[in-house]
Simulated assay, not measured.
Amino acid sequence: MNTYILVLLILIVASYIYLKLAIKFKIIDKPNERSSHTKITVRGGGIIFPIAILLFFFFNDYQYLYFVLGVFIISIVSFLDDMYTLSSKIRFPFQVIAVCLILYEVGLPFSPIYLFAISLIIGVFFVNMFNFMDGINGITGFYSLAVISGLYFINLNEQIVSSELIIYVFISILIFGFYNFRKKAIFFAGDIGSISIGMLIFFIGLYLTIQLSSPLIVLLVIVYGADSANTLLYRKFFTKESIFEAHRHHIYQKLVDVKKISHLKVAVLYAVIQLIVNLIIYKTYRLDLQIQLLVLVVLVSIFITGYIYLFKKLKA
């Protein structure tokens, strides 16, 4: 408990110092086509997420060296992107390296090479998904709390990953929420926040999936997954836009822009839906594989159908 208090205090001080430095050096987020906010706000507040991971590393006998190294590398690049807006040609190689380090950490073999390559592609998409979905106040924080809660309680049963890692990051998200869970946020997570939290969830989720041989673990991010993947397919096949350009096609953006629902209400809605799915997963991840696959297909079908319905209904 004393360690948790120490971590809490360190992260509170770190967040305050970062806020002051960001204001001084004008590390700010200007609204663009993808954003649903209208006010210039400090960006990069999610820097406390990788700091929490580093604190775990130093306070817990240097566990998960390659994962932490991957987070450290991608956090530096992402923070530079928050400051200067780097080209994807610069960011992508470092993302590949970071995901490779995670795959090595969880013990995924290089052979067969096609399986490793598929896992690498999924990993890079996964960490970027958290970045693409970070467009309104509260969504990264609330949704990450929901996903991490699901991972924590499953891991509590199985004791596969150190629970300390999850708790440290949970604390950092709560502190981040103090600045972000507002009508007018004081700061945003930035690329460093959204991508580092994506790395963490990918690492723990992949570790649990491999150790438990349960395909249902992937559903711990089904709300984000359905929105981001279906939106990507829509833009690829039905618009002339580049999939790398900023846009406002995500369901959460349409709920804010078309239905005029507040940012925090939409963020909480995403988190609550994910928590409901988490409960289903928690009750079924130990069942026979055939039953798990049935649950997987049913839930994926529901979310795809729901996405299509909402997309048509909310089309501006």
Rank of each mutant, 00 (worst) to 15 (best):
I47F: 14
I47Q: 14
P50H: 03
P50L: 02
A52E: 13
A52Q: 02
A52D: 05
A52M: 09
L54I: 14
L54N: 07
L54V: 13
L55N: 02
F56I: 03
F56D: 02
F57I: 04
F57S: 01
F57V: 07
F57K: 06
F58C: 03
F58Y: 14
N60R: 15
D61I: 04
D61E: 13
Y62V: 01
Q63A: 12
Y64N: 14
L65V: 13
L65G: 00
L65Y: 15
Y66E: 09
F67E: 03
F67Q: 03
L69Y: 09
L69K: 05
G70K: 09
V71N: 09
V71Q: 06
V71G: 02
I73E: 02
S75I: 06
S75V: 04
S75L: 01
I76C: 01
I76R: 07
I76D: 00
S78F: 14
S78P: 11
S78Y: 11
F79N: 08
L80F: 14
L80K: 08
D81G: 03
D82A: 02
D82T: 12
M83F: 14
Y84G: 00
T85F: 03
L86T: 07
L86A: 09
S87G: 00
S87N: 14
S87H: 05
S87I: 00
S88I: 15
K89I: 08
K89D: 05
I90S: 04
I90A: 00
F94T: 02
F94D: 07
Q95L: 05
V96W: 01
V96N: 02
I97Y: 14
A98T: 06
A98V: 01
V99M: 12
C100K: 00
I102Y: 01
I102K: 02
L103F: 09
L103R: 09
L103Q: 07
Y104K: 14
E105A: 08
V106L: 12
G107S: 08
G107L: 05
G107R: 05
G107E: 11
L108V: 05
P109N: 13
F110W: 10
S111K: 15
P112T: 11
P112R: 11
P112D: 10
P112I: 07
I113W: 15
F116C: 04
F116N: 04
A117T: 15
I118G: 03
I118D: 01
S119Y: 12
L120T: 11
L120F: 10
I121G: 08
I121T: 08
I121F: 15
I121A: 15
I122W: 10
I122N: 02
G123V: 03
F125Q: 10
F125E: 02
F125L: 13
V127N: 04
N128F: 09
N128H: 13
N128Y: 07
M129N: 10
N131Y: 00
F132G: 06
F132Y: 14
M133E: 13
M133D: 05
G135S: 12
G135R: 08
I136D: 03
I136S: 01
N137P: 02
N137D: 13
G138T: 11
T140E: 12
T140R: 03
G141H: 02
Y143V: 05
S144F: 03
L145T: 02
L145A: 13
V147S: 14
V147D: 06
V147H: 09
S149K: 01
G150S: 09
L156V: 01
N157Q: 15
